[in-house]
Structure formats: structure tokens, C-alpha cells
Design a protein around this nucleic acid. Structure first.
Lengths: 342, 342
DNA sequence: GGTGTTTTCGAAAACGTTTTCGATTATAAT
DNA sequence: ATTATAATCGAAAACGTTTTCGAAAACACC
């Protein structure tokens, strides 16, 4: 309660708050001696500026907002770590919100952040989002937005992503070159572009290597919370096509479901069927056999997105025109046991 | 930039900002008709109050700060989800900071949050923290603090925890009652109280069941990022004591390291050596055999801590005396394959 | 038509800063 | 001693709200 403010220092020293403020901020029109006195007294009285007042006056909050669509787990926790670290380094605080894949909530949260006068917004879109008015509204109000992972091409702002299609293409190409012939795909739901792109990458890789695309080899795994989906579809797959020799899964989670099924049924991985995941979640080294997968650089995505956002905030402040960047982070194949032909 | 403020509505309607403000906030001394006009105009002009100005005037920010010691993964991501959900429900925003187990950083971050005028602080202490001045300072300034997981008994505030000692005691008792005789313990580092308590629970369970405590059966695993620690110590354990029949690990992560070593060396789990983990992280069902463990309710801890904090914020505001609560959330044994005697 | 009551509004202060601009004092130049 | 210049300070406005308190208007009552 007894917070010391500028006026307390001022009256303790018998000078004006103006002088105190200037002394503390290093203005050159304050003499060395009074500046020293002010600093000493501020220190003694344990002065800490009231950010709210500063924010109101300076019209910046040194705070960025982050909206993620899903629960903070796996991929998004890596992203978050990247964001937090970069923000800390650059002197920004971060407010986290989760839209839980709901468009209405996402819209409300953007409005909230705007009210809060955050200096910028980082977001990954919910699956329901197909209208971008709320995002454009933020941009129009001079609050920069950078989209990551689940983005909208049509929104004019910076974005940081991976190339899901290319990554999937590479994965399937790898399998083909390893000699696998009948490759199934466990795809994600029909709605986020990422899962569509991974599917398209799968399909294109087949076609480019003269393997006929067979829709019956594609299974959809559309709930993201556990690996049951992969497990159950693996069972279907083996009754439908007991001669498959590889499967490319949309996430490590479903890949793990598949491997669990194979392990339970004594189907040898990779000898009988190889499994390829996506994301390189921590558990992909826990499962046996260890999972070959695509390294989705969550941490890098986070820190990069934060870095660009903070750059843009600075540019807007300096009134220098900002040019939006689309950065596409590289992905790599992490080769492990689940695809190793002996 | 062209944000509409109270004065814009006022001048558009030819009335004062006072009236506009009151109309919007439902004051009864504004006539129905002007209130209707104000609301309509506010709506039309897409008015959104400037939170910073509101905060300055009302002296509350509807924001809470969260400081966690480690990276957002595993346990803390569950906690975070609990916090975020409760905060959303109660109309609070949340600022996340990570202290990275550094006392100095933690101290700085508390100061930052205080400057930001958050309404309350949620924190789990860093391992280095053994001085609580910064926390008491926050409390003294009427900013309630609730500690969770890694707490300090000596700080006078609410806390939400599990009983690590009892949980460990239960785990080891379970092993003893299952007939295991020579039970090793892979403990955590010497510093956080949690790992000490788990160790003490282990020791007490042995003693209460007339099994002599043997220090040579205790191995320390003190880096928390991967399971190598468990793996390597498992190797040591088997050369030192090739007749152990169970091991109680301080976390699921080290338990998984142990199981991986056993799997590699064809040491049967649980037939030759049973393994018991702690926390029930997601991957404990991924490993084979599935891991028996203690359910550490991260989500509940988070939402409960947030709930108590927000209650206390309200109490302080209403000037009703707040009584601090120490809530101890129950833990359960999750029995899976890694301890099942046939 | 005067008095009392209720309804409706607005001026102004306040929250704690930052920053502009003018005023005062000290110093230098003549 | 006078004037010009530089150094040092402070008054005041501003950021956008909320809230107190008094004023004006409307209405009621006799």
C-alpha cells in the first residue's frame, strides 16, 4: 500500500516531480548533484515506477499477447518456451490465452488483448477460424500480429511456419527410397491446413515416384488427445491391407498408437511394417522401437515469431515502414529405428 | 489509431463524458433514454474501454502473474492449463514468467509483476530460492501470493501442494506389500524439498515395515531434462546390486530411463525388477511395460491455486480479512504393468 | 406560486507518470 | 555593469478513465 511514487521522492527532497522524473530518466537538463540525490533517495525509498501510469502516458505496455488454439502440451509448450525466452530477452511480458479451437473465443480474446493495449499479438489460429476480421482489426489499430503454425495466407502480416507439405513429401520419399512399396497414411482431420498439407505431400510423393495413390490406404485420425486413434486405425488397416509395409502418420501421437498396436499384435516394426511420425515429440524416443519422425522446431518457431513481432513493434514506434516476412523454418528427418530396413 | 474513446461518444451525442461513462456502467442516475442512446452510439462507434486508463483509475488490472521455475513441459504445462482455464473463467488474464531455477531472476520477475500492478501472483519456487524477502514484499504491498508445488513453509500465504512424502511412502509401501524385498530409490537432487520428501517417504516406508534402510541403494538423478540419468544409474545399480527386485524413481522420466536400460539388457520388468515412477506423465503409458506411478494432479493444482488467489484478491478488495489456506491435494497410485507380480 | 423531492446531468479531481516549454539562475563575454 | 549564453529547474498539460458532489431541471404537493 505504502508504495513510493515520484511525488514522495520529490517532497522528501524539496524539489518537483518533474525534476525527479527527469533525473531518473537521465535527462540532461538536470545537474549531476541533484540527479545523484534523486537516485540515492529513490533507491533508499525503494522506488519502482507504476507501469500502469507509464503505459497510459507513453502508450505502450511492453507486453505481447499470445493466443494458442490448443492446450499447452507437446508442440505448443515448445513454442511457448521459445516465445517466453525471446520476450524475456527483449524486455517484454507475455500474456497467454487459449482459444480451445473456438472461433468465438479467439475473437473475444483478440478484443481483450486490444483493450489491454498489448503492443503486439502472436497467434496460431483455431480450426474453426475462417473469418479474419478480428485479426485485420488488430492490424488496423496498429497492433502488429504475427501468425505461426496455423496461419491464414490471406491475412497481410508476418508468419512463421514450416512447410508441412514438403516435410511430408520428404518423409514419404524417404520411405520410398528405402524400398517401401505400399505406404499407408494416417491423416489428421479435414480442417486444419497443416493436416491437409501433410496429406497432399504424401500424395504428391507417391505420384512423383510412380506409385498409384490408393485412397483406401488413407485413414483419418481426428482427435488429438491420445493415441487410441492410431491404435484403432492400425487395427483396421491390418485387416483391410495386411500387406502394407509402411505407414506415414500425421503426428507422433498417432504413430505411437500404431506402434503400440503392432507391438501388442506381435507385428514387427519395422521388419513387417515401418512407421514414420511427425513432430519429434519427446515420447518418440521413449517408444520402442524409437520413432523416425520429422523435426518440427517448436522452440524456433516461437522465438522467431516473437522476435519478428518485437521488431515490428519497434518499427511502428519509429514510424519506419514495416515489411512483413513469411519465414519458413526448415524441417529434418530424424531417422530412428522404426523405419530401419535391415 | 482511430480508437474511439468516451469523449468521442460524448461529443457525437452532445453530452459529457461523465454521462457516457455512467451510462455504460449502468449508473442509475442516467435516464433510460440517454443510456439507450449512449449504448447505441458506443456500439456503432465500436467503443472498447482502454484498460490501461481503467487500471490506473481503479487500481486493479484483472491480471495475475505466474512464475514457474522450469521450462513449460510435463508437469508445469498441466499446471498452466489449470491456471489458464480458471483465470479465463473468472475474467483474469495471466502473465507467464519462468525463473529457470534462478533466484536472482525470480526476484527480478516478482518486482516486474509488482510494477505491472498484477492483482496477484502464483508461483512455484526456484531451487535456488532460500530467501523470501521478495515474496513477503509482494504480500506486504497487498498483492496476494499463492505458492504451489515448490513452496516455502515459512512464508505466510496460501499454498497448494501434494504430500510428496506420503505419496512416496504409499508407493514404497505398495511395493513392499506386493512382496518386493530389496527396493532401490533413484532420488532427485538434494535441493528441492519435493525430492527430499520423496526420499524421506521412501526411507520411512522401509523402516515402518522393518526393512533396513541401505544408503547404497539410493542413487541421485539430478538433471531433469532427459532420461539418460535414469539409464546410467540403472547400469550402476545392476552392477552394485544385481539382486534388487524393485526401484522407486523420483520421476517418471528417470523411471523410463531405468526401463529403457532394462529393456536393452533384457532384464525383465517387472519379473526381475519392478519399477515405480512419480507424476503420471503422458509417456508413462507409452513405454512398455506401462509404468506404475503416482498421479500428481498438475491441472488440479493449477486451477485450485488460481481459484484461491482470485478469491483472495476479491477479499482484499472488499477489505474482508483473508485467511490463508494450505490445500493438500490427494495423490493416487496408478497401477500399471511395471510392478505387476504374476 | 412557493416549497420540497426526485431525476438527470456535468465539472472537476484523481490515478502516476512524461514531456513541453517557459522561467529563473548561474556563467561567460564584452 | 551590462548583455548574451548556458545550465537548471518547475508548472502544467496530457494520457482515458471513474467517481464525488453539487447544480439544474422536472415533478409533486399544498
Amino acid at each position: 500500500m505504502n508504495d513510493t511514487k515520484l511525488i514522495d521522492i520529490a517532497s522528501a527532497l524539496g524539489i518537483s516531480v518533474t525534476t525527479v522524473s527527469k533525473a531518473l530518466k537521465g535527462y540532461t537538463d538536470i545537474s549531476k548533484t541533484t540527479r545523484a540525490k534523486v537516485i540515492e533517495m529513490a533507491d533508499k525509498m525503494n522506488y519502482m515506477p507504476n507501469s500502469v501510469a507509464v503505459n497510459l502516458r507513453t502508450n505502450e505496455t511492453k507486453t505481447i499477447g499470445v493466443i494458442i488454439p490448443a492446450t499447452v502440451h507437446h508442440f505448443f509448450s515448445s513454442v511457448l518456451n521459445g516465445i517466453l525466452e525471446e520476450a524475456e530477452k527483449r524486455g517484454y511480458l507475455v500474456i497467454i490465452l487459449q482459444s480451445s479451437e473456438k472461433y468465438e473465443l479467439e475473437k473475444k480474446q483478440v478484443a481483450l488483448l486490444l483493450q489491454k493495449r498489448v503492443d503486439g499479438i502472436l497467434m496460431s489460429l483455431s480450426n474453426e477460424t475462417d473469418d479474419f476480421f478480428h485479426i485485420n482489426e488488430a492490424i488496423r489499430k496498429n497492433t502488429p500480429v504475427v501468425l505461426f503454425d496455423k496461419i491464414a495466407k490471406r491475412v497481410d502480416c508476418s508468419k512463421v511456419v514450416i512447410n508441412d507439405m514438403k516435410a511430408a513429401y520428404d518423409a514419404v520419399t524417404y520411405l520410398i527410397e528405402k524400398g517401401f512399396k505400399k505406404i499407408a497414411h494416417f491423416r489428421g482431420s479435414y480442417v486444419p491446413q497443416n493436416s491437409i498439407d501433410r496429406f497432399l505431400g504424401y500424395k504428391k510423393a507417391l505420384e512423383d515416384h510412380n506409385i498409384k495413390y490408393d485412397p483406401s490406404l488413407v485413414y483419418v485420425c481426428d482427435h488429438n488427445t491420445d493415441f487410441e486413434d492410431g491404435y484403432e486405425n492400425a487395427e483396421k488397416l491390418m485387416t483391410d491391407h495386411n500387406d502394407v509395409d509402411a505407414v506415414f502418420a500425421v503426428t507422433d501421437l498417432v504413430a505411437i498408437g500404431i506402434i503400440k498396436y503392432f507391438n501388442d499384435k506381435k507385428i514387427k516394426t519395422p521388419e513387417q511394417v515401418a512407421v514414420f511420425g511427425f513432430s519429434n515429440w519427446f515420447m518418440s524416443t521413449v517408444i520402442s522401437p524409437k520413432l523416425t519422425t520429422i523435426d518440427q522446431p517448436g522452440y524456433d518457431i516461437g522465438y522467431r515469431a516473437a522476435s519478428i513481432l518485437i521488431d515490428e513493434i519497434a518499427q511502428i514506434k519509429e514510424h519506419i515502414p514495416v515489411v512483413h516476412q513469411i519465414v519458413e523454418l526448415p524441417t529434418h528427418i530424424i531417422e530412428r529405428e522404426s523405419t530401419q530396413r535391415l
